[in-house]
Design a protein around this nucleic acid. Structure first.
Lengths: 112, 112
DNA sequence: TCCATAAGTTTCATTTTGGAACTAAGGCAA
DNA sequence: TTGCCTTAGTTCCAAAATGAAACTTATGGA
């Protein structure tokens, strides 16, 4: 079975994961909750490649979790902000944060 | 940057995702919370391939989230149960479930 | 003897990721 | 008006992960 077929699964957890359950996606949302909104900011903060970031942002917009917003009219530029639907993923990020703090101690400092 | 390098990230969300943030892993844990524990059960319930399941189970055991337990001495057989550490992922699964119920309506019935 | 169970492994084609360079559309300064 | 800067992407290609299906190992039972 392919991962993408999960969007029609009977289980709400599976359906959720079909949108945010692949590599990097939840990390982008973490950045959004930290106040970041621009392409270059996501790149710097998360360490993912531009390639993947562009693809993930497209999917998150299609899923109605982020909104693509023009923030500059001169050289047309766009950033990404959480929709209401996206905001409501906050509790999920919080639980993952709490678990990480408790069960995943830092082994070496990377300062980034 | 590679996904696996996230285990040393400053952010606890990122560190958590380095263990449970790839395809299928959280779905295995969902099954555990539903009371499943055997290889064939996970296969049937989740729809993932044996290949991937075997690899994920190995990683979850190494991470201390599941415990591999011999349940039959005749033909030696093993199953997998949540450790205390694994149990504590319950809140994360719950938040993902709640979000899915609210924001990911089922589009067609698959009965599985 | 032969089939069934159940936890894996192996093989190979397809898809996704990672890394790096490249493009587009202006802005700005000399 | 030339040329470099910024910023959001796209393109290319090699490497790694995934998907599908067959195969293995060890035993129990008809």
């Amino acid at each position: 079975m392919k991962w993408t077929e999960l969007s029609d699964n009977w289980c709400p957890v599976a359906r959720t994961l079909s949108v945010v359950g692949d590599r990097w996606t939840l990390l982008i949302l973490r950045d959004c909750f930290l106040g970041l909104s621009r392409f270059e900011q996501f790149i710097e903060s998360s360490g993912m490649t531009r390639h993947i970031l562009a693809e993930r942002l497209k999917r998150l917009v299609e899923a109605g979790i982020l909104e693509r917003r023009q923030y500059s009219a001169g050289p047309k530029r766009y950033d990404y902000v959480l929709t209401e639907k996206g905001q409501e993923l906050a509790p999920a990020l919080m639980t993952l944060k709490d678990w990480g703090k408790k069960h995943m101690p830092v082994r070496r400092s990377t300062n980034a």
